[in-house]
Write a protein that binds this DNA or RNA. Structure first.
Length: 960
DNA sequence: GCGCTATATGTTTTT
DNA sequence: CATATAGCGC
C-alpha cells in the first residue's frame, strides 16, 4: 500500500495510519468516516494531491464538491500549497451549486436553457411565492410552501419516482392541491424570468448530465466533502459527475449532519454502499483538536441519541479543564459574563491567547444582539460570520438589481424593485398592476415598458405623465446605455465591472439618493457601497488571476464560452452569500468570532462559548427533529480545543419574564460541568499550552499585566442568579458588576412570583464557593466519564505539570501521542459493509430491513465495531422521511424525547449530588498526581495514557 | 404617491 | 421588544 517513492512519502508523512490508508486507497470508491477534529480536510486534500501527483490524473479531470463556499476556498488553498504550479485552479472545485452552475452555463443550451439564465436567490423565491399565494388567494403559508417546493426538488428524481410508484398518495388534501398549484405557478414564473433557484441548479444539472453524459466524459474522479449533508439530488449529481469512471471519495460524519431541514439524507450513506459495492471504508478516530474533557462531554451529549452509529473519538490531547455550564440571570447578563470571562481568560494566559482564539457560537443569528452589544460596550473587536449578509443590505441590493436588469431585462422582480428607486413617482400599486398586465399579455415587464414608451402599445395601466417621462428618459435610457457599453466590444473598450457600477452610481446620483432616503446613516451606507465596489474589484482580479473557470473542451459537444464578467459576478453573489471581508493580505488585530453553529462547522477555536443553551433555543422551538438539534450542540461543543463554556439565561429576555429551562440535552449531564470558569493556575494554563503547542508565558508576565481590581476568579457574576437576587435584597452592595446587574433585571416589571430559594443560607453562598473552588482544583484529573452509571470510559489519563517541567512534559506527551497513534493498527473497518451485505441479502430492496435488531446486533458485535448502525436505523430513517414530507401539515412538531436520566435527577434548584466527592485541597497544590481516586471511580478513569496498549474499548451504551 | 402612526406579529439553520 | 405591515391623512 505504501510505496517508497519520495512523492508518496511526502504526502503520507503527515498522516496517521488510517489517514494514510484513506489517502492511498486503491479502491474505486472510498468512504471516509471522520469524527470531529480527525483531520478530515487534511485527508481529503491529501487524497486529491495523491490522485493527481501519484495516480497521474489531470487536475481538470478531478471534481471536488463542498457545501460551503468557505470550505471550497479553504480546500483550494490547501491543495494549492501541495500542488505545484497553480494546478489547483484547474481542478473543478466548488460548492455543488457552483459546479452545477458551471456545467449549466457551458452546456445548458443543450437542454433548452437560455444562455443568460440568472439565479433566483432566497429573497427572490420568497417574494415570488408570496406574490403567487396572494394573487391566487391560496390558503397556505408562503414560507411553508417554499419549503415544500424546495424539498420536492431536493429529493431527487430517483427518490420521487420510487415514492410515487410505491404508494399512491390518495390524499388529495386541500392543502396539497394548493401546494401543487403554487409549485406550478412558481416554476412558470421562474421560467418566464429565465431564472433558476438554488434547487433548480442541481435539478437541471442532473438533467443535463443524464441526457448528455459526454459533458463529464473526462472526469476521472469525484470527491465529496461533508457527505452527510448531501440530499437526494446531490447524490444523483455526484453519481452522474462520476459516471464515466465511478471513482468517488466521500468524507463525512453522520453525527455532524445538521442540514436535515435542507433535505440532507443520512441515508445516502447506505445508498452509496448499495450502488458501489466494494467501497473501501475507513474511519478516522483520533481527535487532534480537543481536550479529553471536552470530547468526553461531547460524547455524552451525542450518545443520548440511541439510534446513531456508534463512533469513537480517541483523544490525543490531555485532559484539560472541565467544561463549564454557567447560569446567568438574563441574556444581557449572560453576554456580559462572556465578555468578562474572555477578558479574564486572555489576561490570565499571559499573551498566549488573544481575541482571535475565541468564538461565540449561536443557535440562531438573532441571538447575537446581546453579545454584540456587550462586546461593543467593552471595546472588544469582533466579527460576525453567518447571519446577516452584506449583499442583503438594501443599498447593495438596489445596485445588484440594476446590474441584474442590465444582464437580464426579463427579470421582472428585479426591475420592479428598482423602478421607483430612486423615486420616480411610480407607486407600489402601479407596479403591481403593471406586472399583472405584463403577465396577462405574456410580455416581460421590460418589454411592456419599452413598448409603452415607444408608443407601440399603450399600457392599460394609468401612469402619470411625469412618471412616464422619468421611466423612459432616465431608467430605460440608462439601462440600455449601460448594457450597450457592457456588451458591445466594438467601440473602444467595453465597460469593466467596476466601471459599470461606478457609471451607474454617478448616473443615479446614488450618494445623494442615500442622503435623502436615509438621512441618519447615509454615510455608513455609502461606505457599504464603496466596499461593494472594492469587492467587485477583488472579484475581477481573482478571476483574472485564477483563470476563468472554463471546463475542459469535450470533443463533439459544443460549449458556450462564457467570459462575461457580469453574469459570473452575479452568480457569485447569489451563491457566495457572504462577502469575504478578510481581503487576504495584512491581517489587522485579532477579533472574537461570533458565528451561528451551522456556519462554524469545520472550524475550531481554543475557546468556545455556546450561550443560550435552553429549551427553545437548543432544541429550537421550531425544529422538527430533536436529534438534529442535539447534533447541532455536539458540533458546537466539538469546535472547542481547550476551553468550552455553555451558558443560559434563567429568565427569558422577552419581556414576559418567563423562566428558561436548561436544554434537555445537557440537563442530565449537569453534574459533569463545572459551575464556573476554571481558575487559571499553572496546571490549567499549562495544559492549554500543550494542546495548542504554544509557549507558556512566565508567571511574572501574567501578573505584571493584571489591571488593578481584577478578579482572577470567575466570581463577578453570581453562580446562582436566583440566590443572588434574594441576597441582594438584604445585602445591597455585594461588590462587583455582578450585583449591579441584579438591579437591571425585569423583576420590576412583574413582581416575580417568589423564586424558589434555599432557606437557611447565610453561609450557603460560602459553602457553594468552597465546593466550586475545590472542583476547579481537581478538575484536571478527577472528572471522568466512567463515573457516570452505565459508561465505560474510552480511556483517560492524568497529568501533573508544574511550571518548571511543563515544557519537558509537553514533548514527552507529544511523543506518547505519536506512539499511541502509530502503535494502533487501524481497526478492522469492514463492519458497516458486513452489515450492509447481510442486510441486503435478506431484503433485496433498500428500504425495509427485514433483519431483527437483535440479530443484527449479534452479527455486528464481535467486539470491534468501529462504526455500527443500530439495526433499527434504516427503517426509522425511512419512516421519518415519510413523515417529514407532510410535516408542513402537522401543526405539532415532534418533541425530542426527554433523556431518561433527567428523571429522578436534579430538580431545578436542588443541587445534584456531585459525581465525585469534592476534594477540598489547599490552594497552590497544583500537582494532580497527589489526588486520590475517589471511591467508586472505575480504574479506566485514571489509567495513564501510556499504559493503554490495546485499542480503546468501544464505548458501551447501556443506559444513561 | 408619500409619509406618518398604530397595530400585529412573531422569533432557525444556508446554497 | 423590535420590526414589518396596514391603514390613514396629506
Amino acid at each position: 500500500m505504501v510505496s517508497a517513492s519520495p512523492k508518496h512519502e511526502s504526502i503520507l508523512k503527515s498522516l496517521n495510519n488510517a489517514q494514510a490508508r484513506a489517502v492511498s486507497s486503491d479502491a474505486a470508491t472510498v468512504a471516509i468516516l471522520a469524527g470531529p477534529g480527525s483531520g478530515k480536510t487534511h485527508t481529503l486534500t491529501s487524497r486529491v494531491v495523491w490522485l493527481v501527483d501519484c495516480m497521474g490524473f489531470r487536475p481538470e479531470d478531478v471534481i471536488v464538491a463542498t457545501f460551503t463556499v468557505r470550505a471550497a476556498r479553504e480546500m483550494k488553498e490547501r491543495i494549492g500549497k501541495a500542488l505545484k504550479g497553480g494546478r489547483e485552479n484547474k481542478i473543478v472545485l466548488g460548492t455543488f451549486h457552483s459546479i452545477a452552475r458551471r456545467y449549466l452555463s457551458a452546456y445548458g443550451r443543450h437542454i433548452g436553457l437560455s444562455q443568460k439564465f440568472g439565479i433566483a436567490d432566497d429573497a427572490d423565491s420568497r417574494a415570488i411565492i408570496a406574490r403567487i399565494c396572494k394573487r391566487l388567494q391560496l390558503a397556505i403559508d408562503p414560507p411553508a410552501a417554499r419549503a415544500w417546493i424546495s424539498k420536492k426538488k431536493a429529493k431527487g428524481t430517483e427518490a420521487a419516482l420510487a415514492a410515487s410508484t410505491r404508494k399512491q398518495p390518495a390524499k388529495p388534501t386541500a392543502g396539497l392541491q394548493e401546494l401543487e398549484t403554487c409549485y406550478k405557478e412558481y416554476q412558470d414564473h421562474l421560467d418566464r424570468s429565465n431564472l433558476l433557484d438554488y434547487d433548480d441548479l442541481l435539478v437541471r444539472c442532473v438533467e443535463l448530465l443524464r441526457k448528455f453524459p459526454s459533458c463529464v466524459a473526462n472526469i476521472q474522479t469525484v470527491l465529496i466533502d461533508e457527505y452527510q449533508d448531501t440530499n437526494g439530488v446531490q447524490y444523483e449529481l455526484m453519481r452522474l459527475l462520476a459516471q464515466k469512471q465511478g471513482r468517488i471519495t466521500i468524507v463525512g460524519d453522520p453525527d455532524q449532519s445538521i442540514y436535515g431541514w435542507r433535505s440532507a439524507e443520512i441515508r445516502n450513506l447506505w445508498r452509496l454502499l448499495r450502488d458501489f459495492p466494494g467501497t473501501d471504508e475507513i474511519s478516522l478516530e483520533e481527535n487532534y483538536r480537543s481536550s479529553q474533557s471536552i470530547l468526553d462531554l461531547s460524547l455524552l451529549v451525542i450518545q443520548q441519541d440511541k439510534k446513531r452509529y456508534q463512533k469513537l473519538l480517541k483523544p490525543v490531547h490531555n485532559k484539560g479543564s472541565r467544561p463549564v455550564l454557567r447560569k446567568l440571570k438574563s441574556a444581557s447578563a449572560e453576554a456580559e459574563w462572556i465578555v468578562s470571562e474572555i477578558r479574564r481568560t486572555l489576561l490570565m494566559s499571559g499573551a498566549m491567547l488573544n481575541n482571535g482564539d475565541v468564538a461565540i457560537l449561536l443557535r440562531s443569528a438573532a441571538l447575537s444582539r446581546h453579545v454584540e452589544g456587550a462586546l461593543g460596550k467593552a471595546g472588544v473587536g469582533y466579527k460576525m460570520v453567518g447571519g446577516f449578509k452584506f449583499y442583503d443590505r438594501t443599498e447593495i441590493k438596489t445596485i445588484l438589481d440594476y446590474l441584474r436588469v442590465i444582464h437580464q431585462p426579463e427579470n421582472n422582480d428585479a426591475l420592479a424593485r428598482i423602478m421607483n428607486v430612486p423615486k420616480r413617482g411610480i407607486g407600489d400599486g402601479t407596479i403591481k398592476v403593471l406586472i399583472e398586465e405584463a403577465e396577462k399579455s405574456s410580455l416581460s415587464l421590460w418589454s411592456l415598458l419599452i413598448k409603452h414608451c415607444r408608443g407601440d402599445r399603450a399600457a392599460k395601466t394609468r401612469i402619470t405623465k411625469q412618471a412616464e417621462q422619468k421611466i423612459s428618459g432616465e431608467l430605460l435610457r440608462l439601462l440600455n446605455g449601460v448594457r450597450k457599453r457592457v456588451t458591445e466590444a466594438s467601440d473602444n473598450t467595453p465597460f469593466g465591472l467596476v466601471e459599470t457600477i461606478e457609471h451607474l452610481l454617478t448616473a443615479l446620483n446614488f450618494q445623494k439618493v442615500l442622503q435623502d432616503t436615509h438621512p441618519d446613516d447615509h454615510e455608513q451606507r455609502w461606505a457599504n457601497v464603496q466596499e461593494f465596489i472594492s469587492l467587485a474589484a477583488d472579484f475581477v482580479r481573482d478571476l483574472q488571476q485564477s483563470g476563468n473557470d472554463a471546463l475542459p473542451e469535450i470533443e463533439g459537444l459544443q460549449q458556450t464560452v462564457d467570459d462575461d464578467v457580469l453574469p459570473r459576478f452575479l452568480a457569485n453573489v447569489a451563491l457566495a452569500a457572504d462577502a469575504q471581508k478578510g481581503e487576504g493580505g495584512q491581517e489587522s488585530k485579532p477579533l472574537v468570532t461570533i458565528s451561528t453553529i451551522h456556519a462554524a462547522k469545520g472550524l475550531e477555536w481554543p475557546i468556545v462559548f455556546v450561550p443560550a443553551v435552553y429549551n427553545g433555543s437548543i432544541p429550537h422551538m421550531r425544529s422538527e427533529d430533536g436529534d438534529e438539534e442535539r447534533r447541532l450542540l455536539y458540533v458546537a461543543m466539538t469546535r472547542a480545543q481547550c476551553l468550552l463554556y455553555l451558558s443560559y439565561p434563567v429568565y427569558s429576555s422577552m419581556g414576559n419574564g418567563e423562566r428558561n429551562e436548561l436544554s434537555p440535552f445537557v440537563a442530565p449531564l449537569g453534574s459533569c460541568f463545572a459551575k464556573k470558569g476554571p481558575c487559571f493556575d499553572r496546571p490549567v494554563v499549562g495544559q492549554i499550552a500543550q494542546i495548542l503547542q504554544r509557549e507558556l508565558a512566565p508567571d511574572e508576565a501574567v501578573f505584571k499585566n493584571l489591571p488593578p481590581m481584577f478578579s482572577m476568579e470567575d466570581n463577578v457574576f453570581p453562580i446562582d442568579p436566583d440566590e443572588a437576587q434574594k441576597n441582594a435584597a438584604s445585602r445591597p452592595s455585594g461588590g462587583g458588576e455582578g450585583d449591579q446587574q441584579t438591579g437591571e433585571y425585569p423583576r420590576s416589571k412583574r413582581p416575580r412570583l417568589s423564586v424558589p430559594t434555599l432557606v437557611s443560607q447565610n453561609n450557603g453562598e460560602e459553602q457553594e464557593w468552597r465546593k466550586e473552588y475545590a472542583t476547579t482544583m481537581e478538575q484536571a484529573s478527577n472528572f471522568t466519564v466512567s463515573s457516570l452509571p452505565g459508561f465505560v470510559s474510552a480511556g483517560t489519563h492524568q497529568v501533573a505539570i508544574t511550571a518548571a517541567n511543563a515544557a519537558a512534559e509537553a514533548s514527552q506527551r507529544k511523543e506518547r501521542a505519536a506512539k499511541l497513534s502509530a502503535s494502533r493498527r487501524p481497526p478492522d473497518q469492514k463492519t458497516l459493509m458486513d452489515f450492509h451485505r447481510t442486510w441486503q441479502s435478506r431484503t433485496q430492496k433498500l428500504p425495509k430491513p427485514a433483519i431483527s435488531p437483535e440479530l443484527a446486533a449479534r452479527k455486528l458485535s464481535a467486539g470491534r465495531p468501529t462504526i455500527h448502525p443500530t439495526a433499527a436505523k434504516p427503517r426509522i430513517e425511512e419512516d421519518k422521511s415519510e413523515r417529514k414530507q407532510y410535516a408542513c401539515f402537522s401543526s405539532s412538531p415532534t418533541r425530542p424525547p426527554a433523556p431518561e436520566a433527567a428523571v429522578g435527577g436534579e430538580d431545578q434548584d436542588g443541587p445534584p449530588s456531585p459525581v465525585q466527592p469534592a476534594l477540598n485541597l489547599p490552594k497552590g497544590l497544583g500537582g494532580a498526581g497527589g489526588l486520590r481516586r475517589p471511591a467508586g471511580l472505575s480504574r479506566e478513569g485514571i489509567a495513564p495514557m501510556d499504559k493503554l496498549k490495546k485499542p480503546f474499548k468501544p464505548l458501551t451504551m447501556k443506559r444513561l
